Simulated assay, not measured.
Amino acid sequence: MTTSCIHSAAPMPRWPALPRQKPNPLQEEKVSTESSAMTTAPAKAYQVNRAAQLLDVSRSTIYRMVKEKRLVMVKIGKRGSRITAESIAGVLNQPH
């Protein structure tokens, strides 16, 4: 007597994608403090990738905007750099 075991897994339902909203650069982000408690404080500078997300542009565009002096980049150490939140807000508030 042979019995075959057939596993037929039903396909997982696909959920509709949620609409993406542009985050507000002035919105408070969580930062850790020395007491290991999480508090919220507005970010003063963003990594290039995060700035690109906020402005919905590529990293190359961020660097081009820095070169055109539309964004302000600050250096952190030898290799680190950040885009100031103030300059991002200025770009977001510009009339098109």
Rank of each mutant, 00 (worst) to 15 (best):
R79M: 02
R59Y: 07
K22Y: 10
A43R: 12
Y46C: 00
I62Q: 00
H7D: 13
E29K: 08
A45Q: 05
E86N: 04
L54N: 01
T61E: 03
Q53M: 05
D56M: 04
N93I: 03
P25G: 00
S8T: 12
G80N: 05
K69Q: 12
Y63E: 13
T39P: 01
A52D: 03
A85M: 05
R59M: 06
I83E: 00
H7R: 14
V57C: 06
S81L: 06
K22H: 13
L18Q: 14
L92N: 03
S58G: 13
S8M: 11
T33P: 00
R64H: 07
T40I: 03
S32E: 10
V74W: 04
S60N: 10
A41M: 13
A43T: 13
M65V: 01
R20N: 09
R82H: 12
Y63F: 15
N93W: 03
T39F: 09
S35D: 15
S4F: 11
H7S: 15
L26H: 05
K78C: 05
L26I: 05
E86A: 08
E68M: 04
Q94V: 00
V31A: 07
P25W: 00
M12D: 14
A52P: 03
A41L: 12
R70A: 00
P11I: 11
T2V: 14
E28G: 10
T39S: 12
R82Q: 05
T33H: 12
H7P: 02
P13E: 09
I76D: 11
M1S: 07
V74M: 11
I76G: 07
A85G: 09
K69T: 06
K67C: 04
W15L: 15
Q94N: 06
R70I: 00
P11R: 12
A9G: 09
Q27K: 15
P13T: 12
Q47R: 12
S35I: 08
